[in-house]
Structures are given as structure tokens and as C-alpha cells.
Computed example of a mutant assay.
Amino acid sequence: MSIPFFRVEVGGDEREKIDEVFDGEAPDIISDLETAFESYIGAAHALATSHGTAALHLAMLAIDLKRGDKVLCSINAYPSVPEVVRHFDAEPIFIDIDATTFNIDLEKLEAYLAENKSKKLKAVIVSHIAGQSVDLERLYGIARLYDVKIIEDASDALGATYKGQKIGSTGADITCFDFSPHLRRNVCNGGMMVSDDEEIIERARLLRNHAMVVDDEALGYIYDVTDIGSQYMMSPLDAATILVQLDKQDDTVERQQAIAERFNERLEGAPHIKLPIAEQDHAYSLYIIKVDKNRDSFARELAANGIECGLHYIPLHLLSYYKSKYSLRVNDFPVALRNYQQVLSIPNYAALSDDEVEEICDAILDVASTRV
């Protein structure tokens, strides 16, 4: 039996909520989702968007990113992170990663900020790989010291926590979520931008729909445009699905953690692989192992056994656009390069049955035992 890298379970509750939208019984479903998300995360404001990249782009608009500004980010991030920076003709500055967590290396981040003081340094985008954050207290301290904004890319961290507190409520200027992230495609699209800063969220709210301002005292079709925005409104059908799934998210995280614990038990000491290490709270939205050599061969053998795997991520300096644009060399980010050659994400999601978890373990142990 083949086990996909990710599988979505959609039940009667989602279908019932979607029917309410079709029947006109949920006219405020998007604002209902935003309110529920504020409560779930513990943030003052939440703004729903069409997808996660839209949330990141709105974040750049909200902090008034301009041409020539600089935004620091991890070299191990999905292309959407530097992409939204480049759309402003601003410059992403890449920082190498921590070899254990695959997150941005705070030592290297602080060293860069100490050596490159500039008014053009606008923000740091921090991606929480696999649902584990960096030391956020230290990160926020660095941000205050060097006067840069912190935007957290929580695409892999919905429901994840830092010292028991939900990601999105710990002190970032903006946190962005993606309900259909890379290789874990949902049946719907959607993103969410959260912030405790009312000015930031109101600017984003305006720009989310072409910066249109409607005259409520007129007939409803009189509008003005006050800035350059875009169309990043979430679909009501997506909002309905996500609203139901949000209610199950803590159970989803709990199941991911339980599966990860079983992986840890079964795979401990297996030859040629290293298991993930939790330095902070870990939601295990991804379970990333390291294969000591020939990672792609290992993945092909797992695929032959019916186990589909993923990769998180190809370091940005190996991608043609960024390599060429910034004259980056392969060895410029040695930790990320070394990790890239070894990391492999194996299936870990709530829809996996116990039997499937055991089948994944059996396949990994079988492939590992035959390697030289």
C-alpha cells in the first residue's frame, strides 16, 4: 500500500459548513474565521488572506517596505519568503542555519546586524521549520537592540507553541500562517496574518482589497481607491473549511506529536540516519530525519516501498534566480548546504493510522539496514 507524504481528512462537519455558505446562511464566515483565529492564537488582530504568500506580501506592504530596503531571512526557507521581498525591489539578506533545528542561526543573525548597521535594514523574517521555533525571547531582544521588525513565517507552525504559548502570540510584529503549505496541500487555500499592532493590521486590511474605501452612506457601489493594493481576499468556501479544521487543530498537533514519539522509539539507533532534536516546543508538523549519505537514493528506495517523502527545503542560494542575482556560491552557507544533502521529511500527519506509522518505520529500518 502506498503512503502519500500528506493526506487530508475532510468530514461531515466541513461539508455542513460549506453547505451553509452555499445556502447563504453564513454571510460573515470570513470575519467569523478571523475572530476564531484571534481567540485560538491569542492575538489581538487576525486578517484572512487568499493564501500564505498573500499574508507575507501584505506584511511587507504593512511595514511599508520600499526599494532598496533590506530584509534578513534564513537561507533554508520556502521561495515565498524572499520572493515577497523582491517584489518591492528590496533585498533579501540570507543567514545560515542551525544544524540541529534547521532554523535561522541567531548567532549569525546577531553578528550580521552588529556589523551592518543601516537604516535600510527593515525586518527579519523567521521561518519555524517543522513547527519548532528559535529561541524567541532572544530573537525579540535582538530585534529591540537593532531596531528591526520581526515577521514570523509560521507556515509549518499552526498550533505550535513556544514555552506553552501559541506561535503568533509571543511578541512578533507580524506572524503569517499558511493553511496549505508546501507539500502539505489542503483541499482549500488560505493564509492568515496576525498582529497586536492595530495600525499594521488596519493598513493590511485596506490593501487586501485594492485599497478600496466604500462610502457606507451612499448606495454601496460608490468607492474610492486610496493607495496601491491588491486582491488577497479569502474565499468564503475556503473560510468555511478552515474554520472547521481550526477547531480540530490542537488534536492534529497532539496526533503529530504522538506519531513523532513512536518514530523516535522505533527508529532510535537505526544505522545511517539521525532523528530530529527538539530544543524548543515541537509540533512536528514535519518529521525531518538526516540520512548520512546518498539521501536521494534512500528516498528512492522508500518510494519503491510505497513511502513518499519530502524535502524542506532546497537552500535558496542553490536556486538559479538567487544564485545569479546575488552571485552566491555553493559554499557560502556551509551548514545549510550540509543539511540539504542529508535532510529528508517523512510522512507525519494526523490522518496516518497506527498501522501506517508502523509500515513507515518498517520501511525505513529495512532500507537503512541494507546500506553500506
Rank of each mutant, 00 (worst) to 15 (best):
R266T: 02
A368G: 04
V71K: 01
K122E: 09
N331G: 06
E356I: 01
I360W: 00
E152I: 14
I201A: 04
F263E: 02
N339R: 14
S80N: 13
I97T: 09
C309R: 01
F94H: 03
A59N: 07
F88H: 15
L145R: 13
S50N: 11
Y284W: 06
N209T: 15
K17Q: 12
N294I: 01
G68P: 13
I222N: 10
E110G: 09
L183Q: 15
I307G: 03
V126R: 01
A55T: 10
P79G: 13
A351P: 04
P236C: 09
R15G: 08
N209S: 11
P271Y: 05
G24W: 13
E16R: 14
H317C: 03
S118Q: 08
L237R: 10
M212H: 12
Y313E: 09
H57D: 14
E107I: 14
C361A: 04
A43W: 02
V291K: 01
L109W: 04
I364A: 00
S345E: 14
H57M: 12
D32T: 14
K323G: 03
Q257T: 12
V291P: 06
F298T: 01
E356Q: 14
D227H: 13
C188M: 07
I200E: 04
K122F: 11
T241N: 08
G24P: 09
G24R: 12
G306N: 00
K166P: 08
I129V: 15
S327G: 08
I228Q: 12
F177I: 04
G190M: 08
R300H: 12
E261F: 10
M1L: 09
A99Q: 12
A258Y: 06
Q132S: 10
Y349H: 09
P334F: 02
R205S: 13
H182C: 06
A239W: 03
I29D: 05
M60L: 10
P181N: 07
S169P: 09
E20G: 08
Y313W: 15
M233I: 13
S133F: 00
L246W: 08
